[in-house]
């Protein structure tokens, strides 16, 4: 097995451990930090079911962003929905036989990559064109967009321009999952694509990509508006009651 294959196998195991371990740690951190006060942004749902519906709208449709700014919503939504379809399309590399619905979405996944790149391009353009957004942008804000665009373009190169050896790639990917390792095809676009994806996995738990777990833990969105009916009390706050007897 070539050194290149060994490197990529190692890279993906490291990346997977950092991604999963890092996100698990963040989720643990967020979940274990108390929310001492009831602070939903009102009007807010008054039942748990209502909160689930609010979270669903937020995550499936970016409801707050839609209220906020139609351009960011359009570009952000194109990118995220495109990315979701592209990711679902990639499931086929990790299973044999492939699920029916994964087969079904293959063509959609192909065109979704275009939507994804269009969305990213729009978001990036705003960082140059809108003075307010230019002011708040850091180098990492630009680089994450560059990274995602490069992942998208390298992937699209393989889909639309120069196909890689897809059978060998699938054997490699399945081997990663089953710990039965096989050589990786050494096409340029593939190596770039896989390297950048691993990089994205590695930076996920230490970057603003934490908005993904973060949104689920946002107290202004996930709390029920019921403070008159229920006493919300953080453990450290409950200790204060004891002093008053």
């Amino acid at each position: 097995m070539s050194a290149l294959t060994v490197f990529y196998i190692g890279l993906y195991y490291v990346a997977a451990i950092i991604l999963i371990g890092g996100l698990a740690y963040r989720v643990y951190e967020y979940a274990s930090t108390p929310a001492p006060l009831n602070i939903p942004t009102t009007p807010a749902p008054i039942t748990k079911l209502g909160v689930r519906f609010r979270m669903f709208r937020e995550i499936a449709f970016f409801e707050s962003l839609f209220k906020s700014n139609k351009w960011i919503w359009v570009f952000g939504y194109l990118f995220h929905v495109g990315l979701a379809l592209v990711l679902l399309r990639h499931i086929r590399y990790f299973q044999e036989p492939v699920w029916f619905w994964v087969e079904l979405i293959q063509p959609f996944g192909m065109y979704a990559s275009l939507a994804m790149i269009a969305g990213l391009a729009g978001l990036w353009a705003r960082r140059f064109l809108v003075d307010r957004v230019r002011y708040i942008s850091t180098p990492s804000d630009h680089l994450i967009l560059v990274l995602l665009i490069a992942i998208g373009l390298s992937g699209m190169t393989m889909t639309f321009v120069a196909h890689t050896d897809i059978i060998a790639l699938k054997t490699f990917a399945l081997g990663l999952v089953t710990f039965d390792w096989h050589p990786l095809p050494s096409d340029g676009p593939l190596l770039v694509h896989l390297f950048l994806v691993a990089l994205l996995m590695i930076i996920f738990p230490i970057s603003k990509l934490l908005h993904v777990p973060g949104v689920f833990f946002s107290p202004t969105r996930n709390q029920v508006d019921n403070p008159r009916e229920r006493r919300h009390l953080a453990p450290w706050a409950a200790a204060l009651d004891k002093d008053n007897g």
Binding site: Y30, I39, L65, R126, R132, V133, K208, H211
Partner: peptide, 24 residues
């Protein structure tokens, strides 16, 4: 404060600098 308030803890991490709030 980061250990006492989930709001602060999550809000420090979650912002993506999208700019939606900039004119609000």
């Amino acid at each position: 404060s980061l250990k006492k308030y989930r709001s602060l803890r999550v809000f420090m991490d979650a912002c993506v600098h999208c700019g939606a709030c900039t004119d609000k």
